[in-house]
Design a protein around this nucleic acid. Structure first.
Lengths: 229, 229
DNA sequence: GCTTGCGTACTTGTATACTAGTACGCGACA
DNA sequence: TGTCGCGTACTAGTATACAAGTACGCAAGC
């Protein structure tokens, strides 16, 4: 089929294309919580067959962004505080374990990379560049995970992002939000640079709790996105 | 097809059937590391079509028990110390985080369940019942995870089991192995019962490290199961 | 004898056809 | 008017057909 060649970016499979498109739509609430999804409709919409769509949905189910009920339907999950608490728990457990090792082992080259990231974040804050900041935020957390030598830490932590991103994107970008994030990132990196594992753990825990604080506001703004309306 | 009705246990899908069969074969080294798997052959062997086999293989790839190379083949992964270290890292991070909460919050009913499990383990050790002991071991860890209120802890920890089970099953059942396991389980449960989070964490970490100690012996016995022969 | 190139027989990825099962509306009946 | 029951139109699960790409052996030429 010509369209597959034309529309599909180089090096990306139909499965990845479907996954990226669906994840973006769900996290951005374009496909709102509770919405019923038809594999056939999605396949037609994305321009692939049902098979890669099903693969993508299976992956999204792992992230608890959709729920698949056999012979009945596939639904975008409601925002569930339990699911978000689970995501937070996993992210905290993995990244804290990683940063303990990172604080112990980090070398000068790696610390330089961390500081370079912080400088880039500083520029992004100054330029009010939300997209760059979000990317750098992710990069920093990945760097910290990778410093532990256990790349699985980031791989699994990343999977919890779906739940947390949904919260982040829905929360209104308050003034000074990115500035506070940057300050917390500085505190975390500072503790790692000082090889202070206890402080690094404390700062990271405090930092990760931030995203949870915006939940009540979202519930007020979008009660229909939650299970009990 | 009649066979699907006849051979498939009640309530289990073809996908689950394929997953269970393949996982068992790989963990038990019936399908040895490095072995090339053909989706078509596996489908015929298990008695289902390629679709559920592919679903099962995708799940096994998540557990790093197989590696799928597009247009080339699917292979049973070699035993990789990095992969095992990753599995250990994840298991430790999640269960330690969970047991801290468990030690703080555990109530009398839940502690009674833990002690009942220990008593059952005692009987299994006395009866030299390996299968029961393995099941009770899993149950205990799941109970400890569930005590944290974050059932995701066990769900993810369980996924690392593939790597660790492969080590466990290959390691010769040394005399007194289960007795030592039971003693460590007692220490962990004792710390939880005493609401001593620090001790619980220490005992759990020590306990989990045990499985790693058998790795060198396995490498000696089965060098062909490792990447560099 | 060695190298090169093509053809065949695989592989996974994707598309489509078919099966089993659920929800729901509409019509018949009490 | 209310209720029961069946038929239709969906659903996801599974099976199969097709496409794209890799490995490898064998034959031809140097």
């Amino acid at each position: 089929m010509r369209s597959t060649f034309r529309e599909r970016s180089l090096g990306t499979s139909a499965r990845d294309q479907a996954y990226v498109a669906l994840r973006k739509a769900i996290v951005g609430a374009e496909l709102e919580p509770g919405r019923r999804l038809s594999e056939n409709q999605l396949a037609e919409l994305i321009g692939v067959s049902r098979t890669p769509v099903r693969d993508a949905l299976a992956r999204l189910r792992d992230e608890r962004l959709v729920a698949i009920v056999p012979q009945l339907g596939t639904f975008v999950t409601y925002i569930d505080e339990e699911a978000i608490a689970d995501a937070h728990f996993v992210r905290e457990a993995l990244e804290v374990s990683a940063i303990r090792i990172a604080a112990r082992d980090a070398g000068v080259d790696q610390l330089r990379d961390l500081h370079e990231n912080l400088e880039a974040q500083e520029r992004a804050v100054a330029d009010d560049d939300a997209a760059s900041f979000a990317r750098l935020d992710d990069d920093l957390h990945r760097q910290l995970c990778d410093l532990s030598g256990r790349e699985v830490a980031w791989r699994l932590s990343e999977r919890t992002r779906g739940q947390l991103d949904r919260v982040r994107l829905l929360s209104l970008p308050e003034a000074g939000y990115r500035g506070q994030m940057l300050a917390e990132h500085r505190a975390v990196v500072g503790a790692v640079a000082g090889h202070d594992a206890v402080a690094a753990e404390r700062e990271l825990r405090s930092h990760q709790r931030m995203v949870l604080s915006s939940l009540p506001a979202i519930r007020d703004a979008h009660p229909e996105y939650f299970q009990e309306d």
